[in-house]
Computed example of a mutant assay.
Amino acid sequence: MANGPSGEGVIERLIRVLETFDPDHTAQTASQISRRAALPASTGHRVVAELTAAGLLERDDEGRARVGMRLWELATRGSLALGLRQAALPAMERVQSAVRQHTQLAVLEHDTALFLERLSHPEAGANITRIAGRLPLHASSSGLVLLAHAPREVIERVLASPLPAVAPDTITDSAVLRRRLSEIRRLGYAVSPGSVETVSTGIAVPILDSGTVVAALSVILPRGSRDETRTLVLLRDAAADIATTLAQARLFR
C-alpha cells in the first residue's frame, strides 16, 4: 500500500478512520471523522468516500457516515469470536434467566478485556459494559480473570503500566494487583466489588478450551447482594458447559 506524505500507509489511515466510531460517535460527518482521526481534511474525506463506495461505511438520511453492514458481515465470517459467542450463549441465557442480572462474555485482546456479548434484564443493576466495548484488565472481574491466566509477558506489561482508577475501589497498586492475580489463579474466580461502579460487584470465572483460558464469563450483581455464592455456582456450571460445547465443536471441524 502506498504511503502518504507522513509515511503512514493506507491501511493505517483506514484503521484510524474506522476507530473514530464508538458508542458515542455512531454517525459522523467526514469533517468530524477527519478531526477525530487526526487526518488532513482532504485525506479524511477521500478515505470516507472510498470506504462508503466499498460498503464498509454507509450514509444516513443526513449524509453522515455510519459503520456499514458489509463491515460487520466481513468481520463476522469465520471469526473465532463468533464461534465462542455461539458456544457460550445457551449457558449464558440459563445464568441470566436464573439471576436476572447482566451476564457477560469477555476475551483478552490488546491488553484489555473485550466484551463479545452481554445479556441483561430490565431489573438488572448498573453496568457500563457494552458489546464490543473494552475495559482495562485490572478494573473488571472479567479482566482480572483474563489477566491472571494471561501469558507472563502480558501480566508483567500490565503491572509495569499505570493502573488508572475506573472507580474508587479499582486496584491501582501493582503489588496489590500481583497478589490478587495469584489469589484468582488459586481460587479459580474473581469477585470485584466496586471496581468498575461503586454500586456493583462483578463475579467472573474462566472458560477453558483444551486446558487454556480463552474467555471470562461474568455476572454483575448489585453490591452487597446475597446471591454471590449461588451466582458463582451458576457461573462455574455454565463455564463447564461452554468448555464441553467447544470441545465437541472441535471434534466436528
Rank of each mutant, 00 (worst) to 15 (best):
T229N: 14
A238K: 11
T43E: 15
A150P: 02
R130Q: 13
S141C: 08
R100P: 04
L114F: 09
I203H: 07
A247R: 03
L251Q: 14
L84G: 02
V145R: 00
Q104I: 13
T231S: 11
R70F: 08
P23M: 09
A106R: 06
L71P: 04
E153Y: 03
T76G: 11
P222Q: 10
A165T: 11
G44D: 11
P23H: 05
E197Q: 15
R152G: 08
S42N: 13
S192V: 13
V219N: 02
I11A: 14
H45L: 11
D61F: 07
D169F: 05
T20G: 03
S225K: 04
L187A: 11
I33K: 05
G188N: 06
E153A: 06
D111M: 05
F252Q: 15
E117L: 01
H45C: 09
V48E: 13
L217F: 02
P40D: 07
G7M: 12
L177M: 08
A27C: 04
S79K: 04
G211W: 06
D60M: 10
L221Q: 08
S42A: 15
E153D: 15
I131Q: 15
A139Y: 01
E153P: 01
A65P: 03
R66P: 01
R13Y: 05
L18N: 05
T231K: 12
H138Q: 15
I184T: 03
E228R: 05
I155A: 04
T129S: 09
I155Q: 02
R178I: 07
L177Y: 12
R236N: 12
I131W: 07
H102W: 07
Q32C: 09
G194I: 07
S42Y: 08
D169Y: 08
S140Y: 04
V67N: 11
I33Y: 00
L89D: 10
A49S: 15
A30V: 00
H45P: 02
S200Y: 05
L235Y: 00
R178N: 09
G188L: 03
T172R: 09
D227P: 01
V166Q: 14
P122T: 02
R179D: 13
P136S: 15
Q86Y: 06
L57Y: 08
I131D: 11
P151M: 04
Q96A: 10
L208E: 15
V48D: 14
T52D: 15
L221E: 04
R179L: 10
L235G: 01
L80E: 15
A49W: 06
L84P: 02
L177Q: 08
D173V: 08
L144A: 09
G4N: 14
A238W: 10
Q86I: 11
D237P: 01
V176Y: 05
Q86W: 06
S6A: 13
E73D: 14
V191K: 14
L217H: 01
E197P: 00
A238M: 11
G68F: 09
L246W: 08
L74R: 12
D60P: 07
L116M: 03
I242H: 03
R152V: 14
P90H: 06
A243P: 00
R223W: 09
G83N: 13
N3H: 11
P122Q: 05
S79Y: 02
S34K: 06
T244K: 12
L114Y: 05
S200V: 14
